[in-house]
Design a protein around this nucleic acid. Sequence first.
DNA 1: GGTCGGCGTTGACAAATGTCACGGGTGCGC
DNA 2: GCGCACCCGTGACATTTGTCAACGCCGACC
Lengths: 201, 201
Amino acid sequence: MIKLLLAEDQGMMRGALALLLGLEEDMEVVAQVATGDAIVPSALETGPDIALLDIELPGRSGLDAAAELRERLPSCAVLILTTFGRPGYLRRAMEAGASGFLVKDGPVEELAAAVRRVLAGERVIDPALAAAALSAGPNPLTARERDVLSAAADGSTVADIAGRLHLSPATVRNYLSAAIGKTGTRNRMEAVGAARRNGWL
Amino acid sequence: MIKLLLAEDQGMMRGALALLLGLEEDMEVVAQVATGDAIVPSALETGPDIALLDIELPGRSGLDAAAELRERLPSCAVLILTTFGRPGYLRRAMEAGASGFLVKDGPVEELAAAVRRVLAGERVIDPALAAAALSAGPNPLTARERDVLSAAADGSTVADIAGRLHLSPATVRNYLSAAIGKTGTRNRMEAVGAARRNGWL
DNA sequence: GGTCGGCGTTGACAAATGTCACGGGTGCGC
DNA sequence: GCGCACCCGTGACATTTGTCAACGCCGACC
């Protein structure tokens, strides 16, 4: 019997997937969580064979949780299940030790099949997405540039960001300028968009 | 037998919902579409009793399609099923003649129940959401302000927008300024965010 | 007819943003 | 030790953005 953990914030999606996977004779959903923080504790308690993780979760990124989970419960495989096939997400997922990366497009039947393939030792990745991730190259932004760009993503002004990050306004503008340059965009708004699209956020 | 049409762009979600609803003894999914354009033609062909529509679809908004559907096939009820409970979305859904408005949080069981309640003549709306929609008031933006703000949403500069909309740059800035004022924000980026959150986009 | 709101435009102004060159500090690898 | 990349800051500069006041042109409504 394959024991599954399911992490997904949209209640309807979570419920539907849990029901469908439960219908497979050899599978059993032993835990369902809606937040990123709940993943590791719940996994340690229920000891699943595989964890299906969404990335964009309240509280903590599924990628973060995946890394910690692989470390503290190596017997549990990780299969990322996400809405967006962002190149940077795939890269980070692989670095975190995930065995598979599935996007929520594509038919439901793929899901159970992917679970079985992962537990058979295979790595499950959409080939087109893998190609995109390789061609896009690694994240060009430094840690600080990411911080500043993230802080700017909601429309905050330079002064806001400077205050929030305890930096000088001039420094903030320099980081933003660098981020704009590296993303090949024309202003912070386009830079935020480009960084998001690539999963660099 | 209740005949259902399902419009949802995420393949996995669509498949899962179709399977679950198909398990109900009195329901039958007669059509599944992934784009907004496909809704009306498919409905006219298959003649469903109720259409479950997502809002944010490729090609055409589910709200647009809902309005046309109500007009051309009045026998078909409309139940909006969306990720985001934006006040403006609810308002527009009601104006388009929808009988219900469900968010994708909350348990799957709600869905079949909502379908039955709608067909029994009830209106299905989350009370908290209804209150939010009423307290938020109607969309304060004029048509042109919406155009300009939408065009600015991707990070375009004033000159870009002016070119795309065949307007003078100064005019564009005036509309943006008005939108910023009406949304109570400080710059176009916050204005875009606020407009999105409220479903005014 | 008059009023009002929306549309499109202009011009001028202050403020925010983006760019550049430069400085000093740290830690890392060769 | 030396170079290198990243961190943080400064000052100056051009450009963009946001604001305000004003004008004419509709169409709707009373």
